[in-house]
Design a protein around this nucleic acid. Structure first.
Length: 755
DNA sequence: CGTATATATCTTTTT
DNA sequence: GATATATACG
């Protein structure tokens, strides 16, 4: 371990070359080494550069050893990039540095002191799946109707409390939800209790329990104060209260904390992030130096102009003016705006542009399609496959979130830790061992009655006649397998063990027997899992890594077009950025506005700003008149963000379809559905009203969704399974139908077609 | 107990 | 359209 450096005179030459290629503001940010520093870094102003050079500079001038630096990011991607770039700058790996995500570092700290917060150091980090399963059990145990008070809702409530740094006893009464008539805090307490019994922590705990640790054990905190001489934080605008408190506690030591962020790029409010943290920095850290980076090196003047014009519609912001040095005749291409008929045409249009750009020597790696929500990727994937353009979806399902990986890990967890009931429940009957609901309910009752874990209860149950013989045998085999693997674990390397477990449990065989299209992919993932375990010393190490850090490696070096959500694009940049789905309801997202009102809208606008500013050379905004949502057609009007893009930085492409809309005096087309296909009234009115509000009473073609109409009383209908019949009664979308062959049935209207 | 079918709900964004 | 849950049947 490195001892603290004592006034080692820094060889000036070592650090100075690092500063050469920085502008004044950047250099100021790098050189303000001591004391609190806030760097307000607009999009594309060289934020990462400042962070990495700052780090390299601290190391090169020997102000601190790597082990004395804490560097926190939000994503693993960002952590990795920083590590690589710093290593490149100083010419050696950044070993020993505490560099990682808030959660990964929180976990690392907790494992060293787990006993002090009621855990053991090999505690399991549970994912949202397990979290939900546990929550449902608690709700059920309290005789609360899960239908009325869904576990999912409670996990969200509790997560938000954890984001704010509240343990059950700290939740202010004013904040208590009426969930299950005010029982939410009790349920929260019970949930924490169960987690502790299971030796498990959820994501929120990784920070929350650190806070508890620091506050209850000042000696531990003092130890970290001595350790961390310099603290760096990326994306500070996205920190939640608990992360903020965590940082503030740690920074009390050296007071050398440097936070980098941009209030205009705060897009995680829904996850508890508080823009207030960045706005309040100077109060929180007295004597703070604030540096603004406003010179943009990334985007053309047109893109910057469009983005700035858009974000100017937000009221709550610190206000920054980004500028670029490009001369007037090098404005670049205006942001292109194009309306299309539906998502298929949207995908086709983007596909054609991609092919066209490719023909002009643009690399696919430099193109990205940024969508608001995951479901939008599908149309693009299908299209790109059809035209043979290679692509990658970034940030879709992470490796660990795949079902088969979670299952496999549940086996490992149970081997490691027999009282991991959540893991037990996940896999006792995967593959099918004939242990269905009935047997398991019996087993749960027995375990609960004796206050035992499911596995140890099982060990006893297999010697009694509490379960019917066939089930008992199945359970015995399972229990003995676990015991045997546990015994073998010490002898074997992690990958050998993984292979044996997956094989002998029948888990691999289960997927081999599965003839669904996904099965081969799942087997491939399992192989990848085994391969990945080989890189670790123990299964413990691996488990530790997999849930927090590991993600799918697209190690293919072939150029590919990128598809990802706008959130996933934070921190990235591309020559060309496609921004589809700019429609009211989709983007800005309807739910965001309904739930968070004006603040929600502003966050959506920041998201649009983030999207635009990812582009270096070109941005193409698209909106579709029609889109299928939940399998139903829906008509939408263009997003208000489209109108908010300043006209002198945009160019409107001719749209396909029908309809004319008055727009600031200029007539232009947007695509519209045919008006004669008899459809859903509510949707029709909604769209017309929205349109009129925005554009006045212009004569326009009207869009009509193609939703299936509810059949009339007495009409004849056809049902896939029951055949032909007559409608006898209508209750909303539910129909009473007398079928010719199958008799009287209640059926949802969506399941029948009019004849 | 497992399977097939019917219904419900879902999609906002993630460590 | 896709996936979890509920119900009926083999």
């Amino acid at each position: 371990m490195a001892s603290p450096q004592e006034n080692t005179a820094p060889p000036p030459a070592m650090g100075s070359h690092l500063l050469e290629r920085l502008n004044d503001a950047q250099r100021e940010a790098v050189e303000a080494v001591d004391g609190p520093v806030l760097v307000l870094a607009g999009a594309g102003t060289g934020k990462t550069r400042v962070l990495t050079v700052r780090l390299a500079n601290i190391l090169a001038t020997r102000r601190a050893a790597p082990g004395q630096i804490l560097s926190v990011t939000f994503t693993n991607k960002a952590a990795r990039e920083m590590s690589e770039r710093v290593a490149g700058l100083i010419g050696r790996p950044t070993e020993g540095m505490w560099l990682g995500t808030f959660h990964a570092i929180g976990a690392r700290i907790l494992r060293r002191h787990a006993e002090l917060v009621g855990l053991r150091s090999n505690f399991t980090i549970i994912d949202t799946d397990d979290q939900l399963r546990l929550m449902k059990q608690i709700i059920e145990a309290n005789q609360i109707d899960e239908k009325r008070w869904p576990g999912r809702a409670l996990t969200i409530i509790i997560s938000r409390w954890k984001d704010k740094g509240w343990l059950p006893d700290q939740v202010p009464t004013s904040e208590v939800d009426d969930f299950a008539h005010g029982k939410s805090v009790d349920l929260y307490r019970e949930y924490q209790q169960r987690l502790s019994e299971l030796n498990a922590a959820d994501f929120g705990d990784l920070l929350l329990l650190c806070l508890t640790l620091f506050l209850k054990h000042p000696d531990v905190l003092a130890d970290y104060h001595r350790r961390f001489q310099y603290i760096l934080v990326d994306e500070y605008q996205d920190t939640n209260v608990s992360q903020y408190l965590w940082l503030r506690l740690l920074a009390q030591g050296s007071n050398n904390i440097c936070c980098v962020g941009d209030d205009d790029q705060s897009i995680y409010g829904w996850r508890g992030a508080e823009v207030g943290n960045i706005l309040r920095f100077e109060t929180d850290f007295p004597g703070a130096k604030v540096v603004r980076l406003e010179r943009n090196y990334r985007s053309t003047a047109h893109i910057l102009g469009a983005a700035s014009g858009l974000i100017a519609h937000n009221e709550s912001r610190l206000g920054k003016t980004l500028w670029t040095e490009a001369p007037d005749d090098e404005l670049g291409e205006p942001v292109k705006i194009q309306g299309v008929w539906d998502e298929a045409e949207e995908a086709r249009t983007v596909g054609e542009s991609i092919e066209d750009l490719q023909r002009h020597d643009n690399s696919l790696d430099q193109m990205a399609i940024l969508v608001r929500a995951g479901y939008q990727t599908r149309a693009f994937e299908e299209r790109l496959i059809t035209i043979g353009v290679p692509y990658r979806v970034i940030g879709g399902l992470r490796f660990y979130e795949r079902q088969e990986i979670r299952d496999a890990c549940a086996y490992f967890r149970l081997i490691r830790q027999g009282d991991d009931d959540l893991a037990f429940q996940r896999i006792v009957n995967k593959p099918k061992r004939g242990l269905g609901d009935k047997s398991l309910q019996t087993l749960y009752a027995i375990a609960r009655g004796r206050g035992q874990s499911l596995l140890s209860a099982s060990e006893e149950v297999i010697t009694t006649d509490e379960l019917p013989p066939a089930r008992r045998t199945a359970l015995r085999e399972f229990v003995e397998n676990i015991a045997r693997w546990r015994a073998e674990a010490s002898q074997l390397s992690p990958s050998e063990l993984a292979e044996i477990v997956l094989d002998e449990s029948g888990y691999t065989a289960m997927w081999m027997a599965d003839k669904s299209v996904q099965a081969p992919g799942r087997l491939e993932n399992l192989k990848e899992l085994v391969r990945a375990t080989a890189e670790f010393e123990s299964l413990d190490d691996f488990m530790n890594h997999v849930s927090l850090v590991m993600d799918i490696e697209t190690d293919s070096t072939d150029p590919m077009a990128n598809i990802m959500t706008l959130h996933g694009a934070k921190g990235l940049e591309f020559d060309t950025v496609f921004l589809p789905g700019w429609e009211e309801g989709v983007f800005p997202n309807q739910m965001a506005i309904e739930e968070h009102g004006y603040a929600g809208l502003e966050e959506e606008r920041r998201l649009a700003y983030v999207g635009l500013t990812r582009a270096r050379k070109r941005a193409i905004v698209l909106f579709a008149a029609n889109r299928t949502v939940h399998g139903q057609w829906q008509s939408n009007i263009p997003s208000r963000f489209v109108d908010e893009l300043p006209q002198d930085h945009t160019e409107r492409a001719e749209a396909s379809g029908y309809g004319f809309v008055q727009d600031d005096g200029a007539l232009w087309q947007i695509a519209m559905n045919k008006p004669d296909q008899g459809g859903r009234q509510s949707n029709y009115h909604r769209v017309i009203e929205a349109r009129n509000q925005r554009y006045g009473d212009e004569e326009v073609f009207v869009p009509v969704g193609q939703g299936r109409a509810v059949p009339e009383l007495g009409s004849r209908v056809f049902h896939q399974k029951f055949g032909y019949g007559q409608v006898k009664g209508i209750d909303g979308a539910k129909l009473d139908i007398s079928f010719d062959k199958a008799g009287q049935k209640k059926v949802m209207a969506d399941f029948v077609e009019p004849v």
